[in-house]
C-alpha cells in the first residue's frame, strides 16, 4: 500500500494539526470561561471581543479544525474496526472531504453573515 504523499498521509497530517489546534483552543477557552467566576463585567467584555471580525475568522478556522478532526476520526475508526476499511481508506477520505464541505459551507455562512451584515452597515 502506498501511503506516503497520498490521501492517507495528508489526512493523517491534517488530523494531527487540527487536533493540536483544538487542544490549544480548549486551554484558552477554559481560561476565558473562568471569567464568569468574577461576575458579568469581565466576562461580557471578553465575549464582546470574541464577536469581533478578527475572532470570527478564528471561529471559522476552529470550526474547520473541529469538523475535520471529527469526520476523519470516524474514518480512522472505520479503518480500525471494519475488516474492509483499510482497502477503502482513499474513498473514505473523499467521503470525509465531501461531508466536510456539505456541513462547513452552510455553517460558515451562518457564522459569517452577521459580521458581513454589520460591516455593510445593515
Amino acid at each position: 500500500m502506498v501511503y506516503r504523499g497520498s490521501e492517507g498521509m495528508w489526512a493523517w497530517v491534517a488530523h494531527r494539526c487540527a487536533g493540536v489546534a483544538v487542544l490549544l483552543f480548549v486551554f484558552v477557552h477554559v481560561a476565558d470561561t473562568a471569567l464568569i467566576g468574577w461576575g458579568p463585567k469581565y466576562y461580557n467584555l471578553f465575549v464582546k471581543l470574541y464577536s469581533g471580525p478578527a475572532f470570527r475568522l478564528f471561529e471559522i478556522f476552529l470550526a474547520a479544525a473541529l469538523l475535520f478532526h471529527a469526520l476523519n476520526g470516524v474514518r480512522i475508526m472505520i479503518i480500525d474496526f471494519w475488516e474492509g476499511g483499510t482497502d477503502i481508506q482513499k474513498p473514505l477520505f473523499y467521503g470525509v472531504m465531501a461531508l466536510f464541505l456539505v456541513v462547513f459551507i452552510p455553517g460558515a455562512y451562518i457564522m459569517l453573515s452577521p459580521i458581513v451584515r454589520s460591516m455593510l452597515g445593515g
Binding site: I36, G39, P40, Y43, N44, V47, Y50, S51, F55, R56, E59, L62, A63, L66, L67, A70, G107, I110, M111, P114
Partner: peptide, 20 residues
C-alpha cells in the same frame, strides 16, 4: 463537542452569548 459548537455558534451565535 460538535453539539456544543453547533448549539453555541450556529443555533445561537457568539453575539448572543453573554453572562446571562
Amino acid at each position: 463537542a460538535l453539539g456544543h459548537f453547533g448549539y453555541m455558534h450556529l443555533l445561537n451565535g457568539v453575539e448572543k452569548i453573554d453572562y446571562e
